[in-house]
């Protein structure tokens, strides 16, 4: 099962305000790109040697913020009431 099909099953209230910001300048310097392997929702993908990030499928686990050695990821929770709402948990 593809990750996007899985994420489409979840209930999200997506905020227009972005809760995770990736600093592209710092990100460019990184070769190993551990963030690609940290995110269980595969919100970080590599395209043309660059990391492209989308916050919409974020499960708010926090893994990515422990992965980045360059300090390129600025991570906070989405605003109250927004983001993932688990039905089962």
């Amino acid at each position: 099962m593809k990750i996007e099909d899985k994420l489409s099953l979840n209930k999200f209230d997506i905020d227009r305000e972005v809760h995770i910001r990736v600093d592209e300048e710092k990100c460019k310097e990184c070769r190993l790109k551990p963030c690609l392997y940290a995110c269980p929702a595969e919100c970080y993908v590599e395209r043309g040697g660059r990391v492209v990030f989308s916050y919409e499928g974020c499960l708010e686990c926090g893994s990515c913020r422990f992965s980045c050695k360059k300090g390129a990821i600025d991570w906070v929770n989405p605003r109250g009431g927004f983001g993932i709402s688990y039905q089962f948990g």
């Binding site: 099953l9 688990y86 089962f88 948990g89």
Partner: peptide, 9 residues
């Protein structure tokens, strides 16, 4: 049938 996918630390 998968109905939810979740993650946590």
């Amino acid at each position: 049938e998968t109905v939810e996918y979740s993650a946590h630390l």
